[in-house]
């Protein structure tokens, strides 16, 4: 943990709003990324990320300084996103029905932006095949470089449960890859006005 961050954390725990503002500035990308990967929608991810910081702000006093702040924050974000996905299921809104919203500043050129958007869409489709908890474990492992122990702590699981969930998720995503590749190429041909369509 950097010296500055330690200072912000100390001040934020003492109720200093400015110091917490600095933490928001520092952790906005990891928190937003986790919410975005979990929910697959930029607007929902923005709401979830803001809610995560509000919850963290309100319970700063309960944060244990012996543990990494990022893991604590990502744990709040993951639990909130899992709840949101479950609530969405209760109201019978399928993942695919949500509008796909482009993210700002994805790439410098329009061509690169199209490729990036396509990549993000494929990642979303892959993660969609997983259960909310498996999805959180995958995002924490591959995007946030959290260890098995940290993921277990963040998701209230045992280390072996995390390993088994990650293994299951990898198999699931590899199996989905072929199916999704064929589906995407059909969609592309359809959009490009191929004679077959």
């Amino acid at each position: 943990m950097q010296e500055k961050e330690v200072e912000w954390l100390t001040k934020a725990q003492a109720g200093d709003g400015d110091a917490f503002g600095q933490l928001v500035e520092t952790y906005q990308i990891p928190v937003f990324n986790l919410c975005y990967r979990m929910l697959g929608n930029a607007q929902e991810a923005e709401d979830a990320a803001q809610e995560t910081f509000l919850r963290a702000y309100n319970s700063m006093k309960s944060y244990d300084r012996q543990k990494p702040f990022s893991t604590w924050l990502l744990s709040i974000a993951a639990h909130y996103s899992i709840d949101q996905i479950r609530r969405r299921r209760m109201t019978l809104v399928p993942f695919e029905a949500l509008p796909y919203q482009d993210l700002p500043d994805l790439a410098p050129t329009p061509e690169a932006a199209v490729t990036k958007i396509e990549e993000q869409r494929r990642v979303r489709d892959l993660l969609e095949t997983l259960s909310p908890t498996d999805r959180a474990a995958v995002v924490m492992y591959y995007w946030h470089d959290l260890s098995y122990t940290q993921i277990a702590e963040a998701l209230d699981l045992t280390e072996s449960a995390v390993k088994s969930r990650l293994h299951r998720a990898r198999v699931e995503m590899a199996k989905s890859w072929t199916y999704q590749s064929s589906r995407h190429s059909i969609q592309e041909r359809s959009q490009n006005g191929s004679p077959a369509f």
């Binding site: 928001v24 906005q28 990308i29 937003f32 990324n33 930029a42 991810a45 994805l106 993000q120």
Partner: peptide
């Protein structure tokens, strides 16, 4: 990783 739109804080 993807970040939010500018002005998140």
């Amino acid at each position: 990783p993807v970040g939010p739109a500018p002005g998140f804080p």
